[in-house]
Design a protein around this nucleic acid. Structure first.
Lengths: 328, 328
DNA sequence: CTGAAAGCGCTTACAG
DNA sequence: CTGAAAGCGCTTACAG
C-alpha cells in the first residue's frame, strides 16, 4: 500500500479512503493522507477492497436485449440511481436471447453488490438461486419474493381503447408480438376487455416477432382481409410492429390516419418522427430504471424497500397516426 | 474453501479448477475433486482468484453510445471472440456522451484483463495513462501505440461516388454529422475527392447531430435551396440522417428515388425496411468487434498482435433509394 | 504427484 | 485517535 509511506500509518489510510474518519482519525492525518493520495494518483484497488468486504461495488443488470433503444432509457435511469456508489455491469446476451443462467452464475462469482433483472422469465429465476439483493424490472406475472418495478400496461391499453372508441372506430385488428413475454399477454387482454365494454370489436388478430420488416410483411398479407372485415385501426403490441405497418401501409397506398389508424406501445424515440408520428402508449422507462436502482440501493444498505412491488402508470401519447374513423 | 473437505487437498483443487493438472495431479484426485465440485455446486470466487492472479477476467468495452443499434453488432463480435475466457463489461455513459476518464479510472481499479475503446477521442486517450492491454476500434486519425481495428470508410465513400456518378447524378448535397468524430471527416473528404474526379459536384453542405427528427428539419429548411441548385441526390453521413431525409422528403412530396436519391453510411438494420429501402455503405461491425477481441486476446496472452493496425473493407449496398437521376 | 506456506491489496475488529 | 494483526478466497512457487 503505497500511501503508507507518504502518510503516517497503514489502516488509517483505509479509514480515510472509505470516508469512515468520523471521530477516528485526526484532521492532521486526514490532510496528510489526502495529499499523499493526490500526489501518487492512488486509486483504491477494487479487488482487494471487495475481497475484504465480501462483495464488490458492481451492480449487474440483466436484460434480454441491451441494444433495444427502449433499454437505453432504462439503463440511464438505473445509472442515475446507482452510479455514485456502484458500477453498472451489463450482462450482454446475443440479441433477443434471454441470458443463460450459466453465464449469470459466472457473473455472480464477481460478488456483485446487487442484481437487476429486466423482463425475467420464470425459468430463468428458477434456475438461478435468487441472489441476495435483487430487484426485478418489467416482471409482470412473474412470481418471486424479490421486489419489482412494473409498468401498468393494462392502464395504457385501456386509455388506448377509449381513445380509439372515442374517435368512432368500431372494428380493429390487433398485431401482437409472438415472443412469449407476459407483458404482451397483458397488453392484449387488457385492450380486449376495455374495447369490448366500449363497443370496439377486435375482429382480427395476428402475431409476429418484434421486427419492422416482418411486421410489414404480415400487414401486406393481412390488409385485404382486414379491410373486408371493416377494420379501421391496427393496434400494435410494440412501436416496432407499428413502424412496419406504417411503412407497408404507405406502399399499399393506404392513407394513415384517414383510412387506417395505427397505434403502438413503448413510445420509442423514433415514434415522434415517423410519418405520420405514431400514437403510442408511453412507458416511463427512465423512471422504472431509477426506481429499481433506488430499491436495490435500499436492499443493499439493509433497509427494507419502501414498497415491494411498485407499478408505474402508463400514459397515452396521441399523435398523427390516429384520427376520426371514416363513417363516424 | 469448501471443496477441501470433499476432496483430499487444498491447492490441488485450485490446480483442477484452473485446468493445470497436466502432470501435476493424479487422475484419481482429479475425479474426486470434480465430483466434489459438482456436488457442492462450487464456483470459483472471482474476487479471490483475481486478486491472487493480479488481474480479473473482465474485459471492458468503452463506447460512446451503447444504445446505438450499430454497436449491437460490434458488441456481438467482441463477445464472439472473448466470451469463452472473459466477461464483457460495458462502460455505460449517458447517451451520446463520451465517457469520463474519471469513470474509466474507477473501472481500471477492477484490474480488467484488457480494454477495448471504440471511437476514442484524442483527449480521452491523453487523460488515461494507456492501460496495458488495450485495443482501439474505429479510431481513424487517432495517434496511439495501441493496436487498432478500423473501417475503410474512404473506400465506401469512393464506391458511393462511383455509384451516383454512374447513375447520372451531377450535383449532390452532403448532409454531415456535426459530432466531431474523425470518421465523419474522412467520409466527407473521401467522397468529395472521388466525386470531383467523376464530375460529380458537391454543391451544398449542411450538418446536424445524429438524430432523425433534426435531420428531417434540416432537410425541410434546405430542400428548396438545394433544388434550385440542381441537387438530385443527398449523401448523408449516417443512415440515421438519411432516415430523417426520407421521412421529410415524403412529407414534402419529393419522390425518392425518382426525383431525389438518398444514401447513408452504416447500413443499420432498419435500412433494409425503410421506404424506399436505403442505399448505404455497409461497415462490418461484427467483424470489427471480433477482430478487436482477438487482438486483445493475443495481447493478454503476451503474444504480439498479428497486425497492429487492421482495416476492414467497406462495401456499398445498393437499394431502392437510389436510381437514375432525371435528365440523364 | 501433493501439501504447507506465503502473498495478492485491502478492511475491520481489537488493543493500546 | 492509531497501529499491529488477522483474514477475505484464491494461486503459485516451493519443499517434500
Amino acid at each position: 500500500m503505497v500511501a503508507v509511506r507518504a502518510g503516517v500509518s497503514a489502516a488509517t489510510v483505509s479509514l480515510v479512503t472509505s470516508g469512515k474518519t468520523a471521530g477516528r482519525v485526526s484532521v492532521g492525518n486526514i490532510a496528510k493522507v489526502e495529499s499523499a493520495i493526490a500526489e501518487l494518483g492512488y486509486v483504491v484497488d477494487g479487488l482487494g477492497s471487495s475481497l475484504a468486504k465480501g462483495r464488490s461495488d458492481i451492480v449487474i443488470l440483466v436484460a434480454p436485449d441491451v441494444s433495444n433503444p427502449f433499454y437505453a432509457n432504462v439503463i440511464a435511469g438505473v445509472r442515475a440511481a446507482i452510479a455514485k456508489d456502484f458500477q453498472l455491469l451489463l450482462s450482454v446476451t446475443d440479441a433477443g436471447q434471454t441470458p443463460d443462467p450459466k453465464d449469470v452464475r459466472r457473473l455472480l462469482a464477481l460478488r456483485p453488490a446487487g442484481m437487476l433483472v429486466d423482463a425475467p422469465s420464470a425459468h430463468f429465476l428458477d434456475e438461478l438461486r435468487v441472489p441476495d439483493p435483487m430487484v426485478l424490472l418489467d416482471a409482470v406475472g412473474v412470481v418471486s419474493d424479490a421486489p419489482s418495478v412494473n409498468f401498468d400496461v393494462a392502464q395504457g391499453a385501456r386509455l388506448l381503447a377509449e381513445h380509439l372508441a372515442g374517435l368512432g372506430h368500431r372494428k380493429v385488428a390487433y398485431l401482437d408480438s409472438s415472443t412469449g413475454t407476459e407483458t404482451f399477454q397483458v397488453r392484449r387482454e387488457a385492450f380486449g376487455v376495455a374495447a369490448a365494454k366500449l363497443g370496439l370489436a377486435v375482429v382480427a388478430k395476428s402475431s409476429v416477432t418484434i421486427d419492422v420488416g416482418k411486421a410489414a410483411q404480415v400487414f401486406a398479407q393481412e390488409w385485404e382481409g382486414w379491410q373486408h372485415k371493416g377494420v379501421t385501426a391496427v393496434v400494435c403490441a410494440t412501436d416496432t410492429h407499428a413502424y412496419g405497418v406504417l411503412q407497408e401501409a404507405r406502399v399499399a397506398g393506404v392513407c394513415v390516419p384517414d383510412q387506417l389508424a395505427v397505434t403502438g406501445f413503448d413510445d420509442l424515440p423514433y415514434s415522434e418522427s415517423t410519418n405520420p408520428p405514431l400514437t403510442s402508449v408511453h412507458l416511463p422507462a427512465f423512471d422504472m430504471g431509477r426506481l429499481a436502482g433506488e430499491q436495490l440501493l435500499a436492499l443493499i444498505a439493509g433497509r427494507e424497500p419502501t414498497q415491494t412491488h411498485q407499478t408505474l402508470e402508463s400514459t397515452l401519447v396521441v399523435r398523427g397516426s390516429t384520427s376520426p374513423a371514416r363513417g363516424m
